[in-house]
């Protein structure tokens, strides 16, 4: 596309079509243009990402307070020692991982199932595409509000439905430490499954029809076609979905902050909320910086391992 345009452009103006040095925009100027164009991005990247990251790393060695000017006193690695010895730090990390397991697995399997079923429709596919994707377009506050009403104790829809099925003591969906995280995960799955679904659906439509036909002629039944042809051919989509989903789940904050604020008994408090509470509610900015940096390293490591694992299975496939 780009080649043909440039040829036509050259022909149109009558100028030499070749990219001779000195002819047209010189390579030196081009380099400056490129850097210049990157400059605004670079400026904001340094100002809002690298800068704060460095500041976080530095603040972690001070007993920095949110309610006072300056960085506070140098405390060395005391914040790190406190964080690593704190049961709250480990329990919040555990909740983050539990949430990740509860959401990542169904979000991949369910998205694949829905995409496979939708793909079978020859007419009205747009309706299912819209229906499954629509919740994803809602902001987290709307989802939280919606599900807070659904899960509400005594007056909520979810307890009513369970009672209708004959369960006398309906669980307190967001008030019971054993149920709260599962309830939030279920809401999250309903909310975000559409994104993975769309990726899978697009990948499915990329698979040429003749591959199916060839497999069918070779005597593969529908189940075998799905298992041996379709799923392997969706490998790249699965990698993408799995990695994006893992990172998104490890960063969970919004819906938990709004639906339970980490309660009951801190049973749904993820690491990010722990950072938020120590940093902004308690005003212990130095300690919160330490925890934030630790979480950053942990997410980075988990993502790298996960990515490597998936790449390997993909290659084997």
């Amino acid at each position: 596309m780009s080649t043909s345009t440039s040829v036509h452009l050259g022909a149109g103006t009558g100028a030499p079509a070749t990219g001779k040095p000195g002819g047209g925009p010189g390579s030196g100027t081009a380099r400056w243009t490129a850097s210049g164009m990157l400059l605004p991005f670079g400026f904001f990247y340094v100002l809002f990402l690298l800068g704060p990251l460095v500041y976080t790393a530095v603040a972690g060695f001070f007993n920095d307070s949110l309610v006072k000017d300056g960085t506070g006193e140098w405390v060395g690695t005391a914040n790190y020692a406190e964080a690593l010895a704190s049961p709250e730090f480990w329990s919040s990390l555990g909740h983050t991982l539990w949430f990740t397991v509860l959401t990542t697995v169904p979000l991949i399997l369910l998205a694949l199932t829905l995409a496979l079923m939708t793909d079978r429709f020859s007419r009205g596919k747009w309706f299912f595409r819209l229906a499954f994707f629509a919740p994803f377009m809602l902001p987290s506050s709307v989802i939280s509000l919606l599900f807070m009403w659904i899960y509400a104790d005594q007056i909520g829809l979810a307890q009513g439905v369970v009672k209708w099925f004959g369960v006398n003591a309906a669980p307190s969906w967001l008030g019971d430490p054993d149920w709260a995280m599962i309830s939030i995960a279920a809401a999250t799955v309903w909310w975000t499954v559409g994104f993975n679904f769309v990726i899978y659906l697009a990948a499915l439509q990329e698979i040429p029809r003749d591959v199916y036909e060839a497999a069918a002629i070779d005597g593969a039944g529908p189940w075998q076609r799905l298992r041996l042809v379709v799923i392997p051919m969706l490998g790249r989509a699965t990698t993408l979905v799995a990695v994006l989903q893992l990172v998104a789940s490890l960063k969970v904050f919004d819906q938990i902050y709004m639906m339970t604020n980490g309660g009951p008994d801190d049973a749904t408090r993820p690491s990010l909320l722990y950072i938020f509470q120590t940093g902004f509610t308690d005003g212990r900015a130095g300690y919160a910086s330490t925890v934030a940096l630790l979480l950053f390293v942990i997410i980075l490591l988990i993502s790298l391992v996960w990515f490597a694992l998936i790449r390997r299975t993909e290659k084997e496939g």
Binding site: M148, W149, Q154, I155, G156, G175
Partner: peptide, 19 residues
């Protein structure tokens, strides 16, 4: 009293709905 009434309007609704 209920074992868990909701802070987002649940507890009040029990009163206003006569429950």
């Amino acid at each position: 009293i209920p074992p868990g009434a909701d802070g987002d309007g649940g507890a009040i609704t029990l009163l206003t709905s006569g429950k």
